[in-house]
Amino acid sequence: MLELRLVQGSLLKKVLDAMRELVNDANFDCSATGFSLQAMDSSHVALVALLLRSEGFEHYRCDRNLSMGMNLNNMSKMLRCAGNDDIITIKADDGTDSVTFMFESPNQDKIADFEMKLMDIDSEHLGIPDAEYQAIVRMPSSEFARICKDLSSIGDTVVISVTKEGVKFSTAGDIGTANIVCRQNKTVDKPEEATIIEMQEPVSLTFALRYLNSFTKATPLSDTVTISLSSELPVVVEYKIAEMGYIRYYLAPKIEE
C-alpha cells in the first residue's frame, strides 16, 4: 500500500514539466526515504535524478519498496487536470498495475481521482559516486536559463570556463560568436540573486546547449541553480526543491579528440 499526500500539488506538476522533455518513460521508486527517480535520455548522455523526501509530504505511507513505471507525458496529462492550489495524493496498492492521482481543492468542495496504467520499464540504474568538483558555481536559476536560451540562438555548444575572474559561457556559430561572463557577486540585497564561485582550480568544459536548455525547464522549482564542474566528469546541474529534496541533471561533456 502506497499513499503520498502532497499539499503543494503544483510542485508535482512542475517536477513533471522539468523532466518530460528529457525522458519519456521512467520508474518512480518509493521507499521509506522518499519518492525518487533516476532516468537517462535515449542517447544516454544526460541523466535526471529526482528526490522528494518523505518528510516533505503531509502524509507518507509506503509499506514496502515499490517501483512504478510511468510514461511521463501521460502522467503530465493527468496532473494538468489538477488545479494549481489542489492537494495531490498518489495512491497504489501492492501488486496492482495502476496508480491513482487524487486531486482535492483547498476547501474540499471538489475531489477528483484519475487512474493511470503503469508500464514495465527496463531501466539501467547507475551508481553515481560522490565526487570532488574543481569548481562549483551557484547563480540565479533565471539567469542561467536566460544565458542558455540566448547562446542557443548563436551556437549548438557552450564552453563553460571557471577562473578566479568568474564563470564564462562561450559559443560560436555560423553567424558569429558570443561570450557571457558572470562575476562573483555576493553583495546583493537577496541571497538568491548572488553568484557565488567556489573554485579549487580553473576548469573549462564543452556541453551541448540542447540538453542544458532542457535542464532549465526546472527553473520554476528553485530561485538558484548549482553547476558543479570537473575535467573528465559529467557536469551536475542541481535545482534544490525547498524542504523536499532536489532535481539533479548530469550531462557528459563533449570531448575534443
Binding site: L126, T206, A252, I255, E257
Partner: peptide
C-alpha cells in the same frame, strides 16, 4: 571530431 561519452561510460566503467 567532437564526440560524447555516455554516462554509463563515466559511472559504471570508470
Amino acid at each position: 571530431e567532437v564526440f560524447q561519452n555516455t554516462l554509463v561510460d563515466y559511472f559504471n566503467n570508470k
